[in-house]
């Protein structure tokens, strides 16, 4: 009975959407806003990756909110699991030598790859979120491979906080010193398509990379410890 009602409900929603989609042809030309970003994005922000310039400059405030949401998830998860009583120490079976050596070998390489992704966020596909996720995957590998190791929680928290503050302070500098707008790109744009270009974008993306990496690591750490 419940299934039939659900299907009827979904069918009604489906009809409405089909009706609406006739006005949104697939693969049609770009919209006004999107066109503006592609035409002017390079001069106005200095980034060759237009998605990055949208994420960090035109819609940078969304990204601040996004970073906040990830922070919120890490804190909320900690708050939910904090009052959980532990069932005593978990039995850890040590990993084999091959696994351990492999993890130790791969760990710095994955970190390097993550750092490459977020440093080149304004030039190539990728950016702070993707790079941060890759860095967190390196820590996950250590958790799974070298099982007795633990991350330093205090250092993790400090990294997280400082990276978040860097984002906000960059925005506030833009408000006070350069241009009277929050998050305005006050630094020199530099030569396009080089590493040192596009003003505050790389700095913020590096901060986001650190923040996302430490937050996801914190989430992994909490879930590993408490479950």
């Amino acid at each position: 009975m419940k299934k039939i009602i659900s299907l009827i409900l979904l069918f009604i929603i489906c009809l409405g959407i089909v009706f609406c989609l006739q006005d949104i042809p697939f693969g049609a030309a770009k919209t006004k806003v999107g066109h503006y970003y592609i035409d002017n994005g390079r001069e106005e922000t200095g980034a060759t990756n237009i998605v990055t310039s949208v994420v960090l400059n035109y819609r940078g405030f969304d990204t601040l909110g996004e970073v906040t949401i990830l922070f919120l998830a890490a804190i909320g998860l900690g708050a939910v699991l904090a009052t959980l009583k532990k069932k005593g120490k978990r039995q850890i079976e040590p990993a084999s030598l091959i696994l351990k050596t492999g993890c130790r070998f791969l760990f710095p390489l994955i970190l390097l790859f993550g750092a490459y992704i977020f440093i080149h966020g304004h030039l190539t596909p990728g950016g702070g979120f993707q790079g941060g996720a890759i860095i967190a995957s390196a820590f996950l590998l250590v958790y799974l491979g070298c099982r007795e190791r633990k991350i330093n929680e205090v250092a993790n928290k400090i990294t997280e906080s400082i990276a978040g503050l860097v984002f906000i302070v960059m925005g506030l500098i833009g408000l006070t010193v350069g241009g009277h707008y929050f998050l305005s790109n006050f630094m020199p744009k530099g030569e396009i398509n080089t590493l040192f270009s596009s003003g505050i974008i790389p700095i913020i993306y590096i901060a986001i990379g650190f923040k996302v990496g430490s937050e996801l690591t914190g989430i992994i750490d909490n879930l590993m410890e408490k479950s």
């Binding site: 006004k32 503006y36 400059n57 405030f61 707008y181 929050f182 998050l183």
Partner: peptide, 13 residues
């Protein structure tokens, strides 16, 4: 009206 990043609406937030 506070323009964030100094971009005019509708291009900025």
């Amino acid at each position: 009206i506070v323009k964030i990043g100094g971009f005019h609406p509708p291009f900025g937030i």
